[in-house]
Design a protein around this nucleic acid. Structure first.
Length: 350
DNA sequence: CGGCTAGAAAGCGCCCAGTG
DNA sequence: CACTGGGCGCTTTCTAGCCG
């Protein structure tokens, strides 16, 4: 077998190890057996279907997703979910698309046929776009069915601005990779689809995940200027108290902007070059500091990077309001007209 | 080549509100 | 109150690039 980096390691008889796929031969050190006191990867429960999924598509859903581009999910998330709820942005997407915000049933989100997944993306210091591993469904559900037809919506990790969407169908190379995961060793083969059990013994609730690599290679990540850098320095300044900061759009060459919430001053911290390079920067709110402005950290984002709102759906003012959480909370489903000949999910000929 | 280091990628523990 | 969805974020490991 091979690691993701191409190094060949024996599968049978080799002492298992935690983390590194490369055995430390030179030191003579014998690694201990894996001791996962937390999450564990388990064998998959669902065998892969022999056939690729039949393609399904809905033009109305596609238009809704397109209308969401450029809008931040912050305002809708604050409207639909508590501020520290883990799934609040996925909830916000569902709400925008006109669905029940708390849908956790076994059926696919869109009329039982199309699954909707939010993928949070960010840029590394070198400018590469990446995402995290992605939860597919709970382990008692069939991940192959869940991944048959998926609308992936991509949002920036900091601004939560929707930067694009794409359709995925379990077919071709993607289907082959997912199917191969069934026979793979969940630890040593590093499959792209795996079951992971969580947390404390007796309270484990295993779930299917796809790797970040799978999303990058078989779904495809967008690469647009709106995707900002995420690094430890920004996290230390912007996620104090583990809450989302309040965002103020700013021109990259400005040091200070008007707070869209209270009309006060918001001053960028750090050099303008850092804002240009990363797309966001920590900020400080000038006194007086009252109301909501006093309760959250502040950040500025380079407004020149924001995607143009889709004409006829939202304007720039509404885009800024969605980002800064001011003004009425707008819903894309209220702006994109459902056509009379509503194209429900239709199975296309392959 | 070997040592060192920064940054990227993956591992892994657990969060937190909604739901039944 | 147990269980769950959809992740978050800190830690660990790997790798590419630099220097001698």
């Amino acid at each position: 077998m091979r690691t993701r980096h191409g190094a060949t390691i024996p599968r049978i008889g080799a002492p298992p190890q935690v983390g590194s796929p490369v055995l430390p031969v030179a030191t003579g050190h014998v690694p201990a057996l894996p001791c996962y006191n937390g999450s564990v990867r388990l064998p998959m429960r669902h065998p892969p279907p022999a056939e690729a999924a039949a393609p399904a598509f809905c033009a109305y859903l596609d238009a809704l997703a397109e209308g969401l581009r450029g809008l931040s999910l912050h305002a809708a998330a604050r409207h639909t979910a508590p501020r520290r709820s883990r799934g609040r942005f996925g909830t916000a997407v569902q709400w925008h698309l006109g669905l029940d915000a708390h849908d956790s049933g076994p059926a696919a989100d869109w009329e039982g046929t199309i699954e909707i997944k939010l993928v949070t993306v960010h840029r590394t210091a070198r400018g590469h776009v990446r995402c995290d591993k992605l939860k597919v469904c709970d382990a008692h559900l069939d991940p192959y069915a869940r991944l048959s037809n998926v609308l992936f919506v991509f949002a920036d990790r900091w601004t939560r601005v929707v930067v694009g969407h794409t359709w995925f169908r379990r077919a071709g190379a993607g289907h082959a990779v997912l199917a191969a995961a069934y026979d793979a060793d969940p630890h040593f083969d590093r499959p792209d689809l795996f079951v992971e059990a969580r947390g404390r013994p007796g309270r484990s609730a295993p779930a299917y995940y796809v790797s970040a690599r799978f999303v990058a290679e078989h779904v495809g990540l967008p690469d647009v200027p709106a995707i900002t850098v995420d690094d430890a320095e920004l996290r230390a300044h912007l996620r104090t108290g583990r809450v989302d900061p309040l965002w103020t759009p700013i021109a990259p060459d400005e040091d200070e902007a008007v707070c869209p919430r209270c009309g006060g001053g918001v001053r960028r911290l750090g050099p303008a070059e850092a804002l240009r390079a990363k797309g966001v920067a920590p900020a400080v709110h000038r006194m007086p500091l009252e109301g909501v402005c006093a309760r959250y950290p502040h950040g500025v984002c380079d407004r020149s990077r924001l995607p143009e709102p889709v004409p006829g759906v939202f304007g720039v003012r509404e885009q800024i309001e969605s980002l800064s959480c001011t003004g009425p909370v707008l819903r894309v489903a209220d702006r994109v007209v459902e056509p009379d000949d509503h194209e429900h999910p239709v199975f296309l000929s392959a």
